[in-house]
């Protein structure tokens, strides 16, 4: 099987702060790989270097294809409110003739089950549906690699399960190569064919694990499967090396915000 993405000794430093410290891994064609790591460990820096948004300080990223697509966590900002749902999906296809653009957008919207919403504005849809528009837009672009940055972190639990299953179905049907960055251990095990576990800053590769689960997965049975539970525990232990608690930056920030708002209102 050919490699779709090859990352060799990738490192990035902001000033004195080292965000990524030499990562090497590959993603094979048709594979779904999850990158999991604690919050603030440099995952988004990794995503930004792979997608070419920033040039890494050292190392190489090579993609077996001309372009990749990204689905961002913040769907409400990544979609363009002045374009219709269809316009958003057509957004990356400007270089194509109009008819082909239309056809591709319609097709991609069908894949994510939003064929009927083509004429609506994104903000008229629920959060989960907006993220499906973003996925359709990425798929319509026919990328060599689909990058997803915490794609389901901003929707409620029910919608999250639906979107996870949608992603699994779509990528199986269209043989898409996907790299999902997440901080959610359960999600990484449920979605992935392989899991790359990163340690805290600077991000280093701790483990590269195959997921011993069948391709067909189900929210209820898979999550209670012994192999699922075992792998989840393993990843959790890896993320918590030597019992040293890694600081959860998000929770810490939220707690601080709360204490701040208390002082203001009192």
């Amino acid at each position: 099987m050919s490699n779709m993405l090859e990352v060799a000794d990738l490192g990035h430093t902001y000033g004195d702060y080292e965000a990524i410290g030499g990562l090497t891994f590959t993603v094979r064609a048709g594979e779904l790989v999850c990158v999991v790591g604690p919050s603030g460990c440099g995952k988004s820096t990794l995503l930004r270097t792979i997608s070419g948004l920033i040039a890494p300080s050292r190392g190489d990223v090579s993609l077996n294809g001309s372009h990749l697509a990204v689905v961002f966590q913040d769907y409400s900002r990544s979609l363009f409110p002045w374009l219709s749902v269809q316009g958003n999906v057509e957004f990356p296809l400007r270089s194509l003739p109009r008819a082909e653009r239309r056809a591709r957008a319609a097709e991609a919207l069908e894949w994510v089950g939003l064929g009927a919403a083509a004429k609506k504005r994104p903000w008229q849809l629920s959060g989960g549906m907006q993220q499906r528009v973003a996925i359709a837009r990425a798929l319509a672009y026919r990328p060599a690699l689909l990058l997803m940055d915490e794609p389901f972190a901003s929707v409620d639990a029910q919608t999250r399960f639906e979107l996870e299953d949608l992603l699994l179905r779509v990528r199986r049907e269209h043989d898409t190569t996907v790299l999902v960055v997440t901080h959610d251990i359960d999600e990484s095990v449920y979605l992935g064919d392989r899991i790359l576990v990163l340690s805290g800053s600077p991000a280093k590769l701790v483990a590269d694990l195959e997921v011993p689960l069948p391709a067909e997965r189900d929210q209820v049975t898979t999550r209670t499967d012994e192999a699922f539970v075992a792998l989840r525990s393993k990843v959790a232990r890896l993320l918590n090396v030597g019992g040293k608690p890694t600081m959860d930056v998000d929770k810490w920030a939220a707690a601080e915000r709360e204490s701040l708002s208390e002082t203001v209102s009192s």
């Binding site: 948004l53 697509a69 990204v70 961002f72 990544s78 363009f80 957004f91 990356p92 270089s95």
Partner: peptide, 21 residues
């Protein structure tokens, strides 16, 4: 906003689309 800038960069849209679109 940054996400729209990033989105436009990732999809490698042409310059006129970036300015007008």
């Amino acid at each position: 906003d940054v996400t729209k800038v990033d989105t436009s960069a990732v999809f490698q849209i042409p310059r006129y689309q970036w300015v007008l679109g």
